[in-house]
């Protein structure tokens, strides 16, 4: 089925409900779907579980959701940064739960969810605090940790361009978590600079096939 095309970011996120689990793309600000996050702020959904590489930067996007205590749990690899003051405050106040995951395990857990994998053994984290309580196995003399998939109700993703089938292309390192998050969510909501007619994207360069995309919104952009 072709994706729903929303006319505004607010319309795109209107179905997000309290207690939803949301994958949010971006590595730092690159690929962070800022307008969709702003719309999520405005829609009022709370008690959210958010998966992102970081825990918000400065006074924008995810940092503001955390500041307003709308996020009850964050799953990320790198929360502490020089400008993560809203997360730091919420964490020290005991008002946000943190699940810290090595970055490659975070990516693979998201990929696994989209690929229907029930779990996987990874060498990353073996013998560390982040593997405590997890099943381990030695395979061919090397230690591995059992990790589980991370699926979600929604994904908020930023791509460069879509066609009306939902096929996506990205731009430079802003691609980061976008493709795997779109696949791992029940409902993938994607903001793009522009939406072109079907047939206008070269099938050879499509990065995310439209099968993974549920809602599109074109917000313009400087690229």
């Amino acid at each position: 089925m072709a994706p729903r095309i929303a006319t505004t970011a607010a319309e795109a996120v209107a179905n997000i409900h309290d207690s939803a689990t949301i994958l949010i793309g971006g590595f730092g600000n690159a690929g962070q779907p800022m307008e969709l996050i702003d719309a999520l702020m405005d829609c009022g959904a709370k008690d959210l579980t958010v998966i992102n590489n970081n825990a918000g930067q400065a006074d924008a996007g995810l940092a503001l959701l955390i500041k307003e205590r709308r996020v009850k749990k964050i799953i990320c690899s790198f929360p502490r940064q020089s400008d993560s003051w809203h997360f730091d405050e919420a964490y020290r106040a005991g008002e946000i739960e943190l699940e810290l995951v090595p970055q490659g395990n975070l990516a693979e857990r998201i990929r696994a969810a989209g690929a229907g994998i029930g779990g996987f053994f990874t060498p990353t984290g073996y013998g560390t605090l982040l593997a405590e309580g997890k099943e381990t196995r030695v395979i061919d003399g090397k230690g591995y940790v059992l990790e589980s998939p991370i699926s979600a109700d929604f994904a908020l993703v930023k791509a460069l361009r879509a066609d009306t089938h939902g096929n996506l292309i990205y731009r430079k390192t802003a691609r980061n978590f976008g493709p795997i998050m779109a696949a791992a969510a029940k409902s993938a909501i994607v903001q793009v600079d522009d939406i072109v007619q079907t047939g206008q994207l070269d099938p050879e360069v499509v990065v995310t096939p439209g099968i993974y995309v549920d809602t599109l919104v074109a917000l313009g952009g400087k690229n």
Binding site: S77, P79, L100, P102, Q103, G104, N105, P123, L130
Partner: peptide
């Protein structure tokens, strides 16, 4: 990746993946 100091907010990023990869 972590000093283990009380009150330190842990962050790991790609350190564990890079170390063994």
């Amino acid at each position: 990746w972590h000093t283990g100091a009380p009150g330190a907010i842990p962050a790991v990023g790609g350190a564990m993946d890079l170390a063994i990869g």
